[in-house]
């Protein structure tokens, strides 16, 4: 895959600490309504904070609050990468959260490759 393609993906694949921009929600019915209501509209910025201890659901920061959603639901949110990895000094309120132990096994090797499904390609 070319670099430009790795910059887009779905929210469930995004790694902790990345800053993303929402491109659109591709769910139907209630889930769609919920996600839209919570502010996952085109252009909204989200930062991936962490995954639950068992790997699902995922916690993100959006519009100044913390939102959790299952990977199943996150899969329907199309996003574009704005800033990779935990190293970027965004000045955003939760910079520190992306750091520390246990941010994913491949953190060091793939920090510019934020969507894990591209790891294998």
């Amino acid at each position: 895959m070319r670099a430009s393609e790795t910059m887009e993906g779905t929210l469930d694949q995004a790694r902790c600490g990345t800053l993303l921009e929402v491109q659109g929600v591709y769910a139907e019915g209630e889930i769609r309504r919920r996600l839209l209501d919570m502010g996952l509209v085109k252009g909204a910025r989200i930062r991936v904070i962490r995954k639950a201890p068992l790997g699902d659901p995922v916690e993100v920061e959006i519009n100044g609050f913390f939102l959790t959603l299952r990977l199943e639901e996150a899969k329907t949110v199309k996003v574009r990468l704005l800033e990779a990895g935990p190293f970027h000094r965004h000045g955003g309120p939760h910079y520190g959260r992306g750091r520390g132990m246990g941010r994913g096994r491949h953190r060091w090797f793939h920090r510019f490759n934020p969507f894990s499904d591209t790891d294998h390609s």
Binding site: M38, P57, F65
Partner: peptide, 8 residues
């Protein structure tokens, strides 16, 4: 219920 929940 979709799990779309705020952590207050």
């Amino acid at each position: 219920e979709p799990f779309v929940m705020e952590l207050p």
